[in-house]
Nucleic acid binder design. Structure first.
Lengths: 178, 178
DNA sequence: AGCTTTATGTAGCAGGCGCTACAATAGCCT
DNA sequence: AGGCTATTGTAGCGCCTGCTACATAAAGCT
């Protein structure tokens, strides 16, 4: 076929397929076809399906972090509410939708007790918390608590968005102190 | 083998199994065994697996509403923050855990575009929003917005709880006006 | 009584699943 | 050149999936 397909060249192709078709329902043969290989080769390179998923989660977390850094303005934001609104505005872009489809798969896996998913999801939340802390106004009376409040609000908004009730968090923002 | 198993007698048994083992990965034969019948009978009574899932979602939504009404104090609550804390305290009880495992399955289905899941999840959120509106302090300056803020905060907290970061929303509460 | 509708069991189909066995190739090291 | 190791292909195993065919029994209804 197209020459050498190593672990490293495979992962981005697999990740693209997973972003488009979901993670929980992804099975070896369609994945292999999407990457131009066989299920046999995926097992060979990653040992097992669990190994493949672990590699994918790691890669996708890096991808998400990179997308975050490039999509957001570098400076600090005017207020807590401003922070929430900016994050929601940018993650509402179509380019982020596949990430969220994947994200809710991962959360469901966490709730079902999947350890690998728990580790990956927790790390991503920590990352996001750090990003928010770095972008909130410097004069906030309690920056640590504010960042946690903002993160919770953002995640709640994204869940409600996912179930078609994005208007609820939007209307709730006016009840939040600046 | 215990005589007549109608649609109505089947649904609670199936719901119990789904609450324990998840909805997305539930398949006909284990479900049938849990309900003391065969996959053939499930198809007969519900037409297809989709029909079965629809019936289960409807039943489980009613079940959740009932659990909500019995578990919560009837009166109003002292403050927005109080409302969040009380809801989180009660839904953190072990008895509610199976509901949440199911819930995140449903949210993942919504994000994947499943219409039946979207309808059920949206209805449940509307229900919860109504409950919050009825329990918030009567003297809130903007009750509608406050209820939406509180709901968003609660749902964000529950997602973070699901991925093992329950400490984040907890610490964020102190940044919320009373 | 006869007949139609409803309910239930047994067997099986076609296909997808993760994974393995075995053999062959390809490329490097000496 | 010869051998060793890393890689790749083909076939298939055993299991599970939703669902169907067909026969059977029970339960009204006339």
């Amino acid at each position: 076929m197209s020459g050498k397909l190593s672990r490293e060249t495979l992962v981005p192709l697999l990740a693209a397929h997973v972003l488009e078709h979901g993670l929980n329902h992804a099975s070896l043969r369609p994945l292999a076809k999407a990457a131009g290989t066989s299920d046999r080769m995926l097992i060979y390179h990653f040992g097992s399906k669990d190994g493949l998923v672990a590699a994918l989660l790691e890669y996708l977390a890096e991808m998400f972090a990179a997308a975050l850094d490039t999509a957001f303005p570098a400076g600090r934001v005017a207020s807590r509410r401003d922070c929430i609104e900016q994050v929601l505005a940018i993650t509402a872009q179509p380019a982020f939708q596949p990430f969220f489809r994947l994200w809710w798969d991962i959360v469901a896996g966490c709730a079902a007790g999947n350890r690998a998913y728990l580790d990956a999801a927790g790390a991503i939340m920590d990352l996001l918390l750090g990003w928010i802390e770095a972008h909130l106004p410097a004069d906030d009376p309690d920056p640590a608590a504010a960042a946690r409040l903002v993160l919770t609000q953002i995640e709640g908004a994204q869940m409600l968005q996912a179930v078609g009730r994005g208007d609820i968090p939007q209307a709730g923002l006016s009840a939040l102190q600046s």
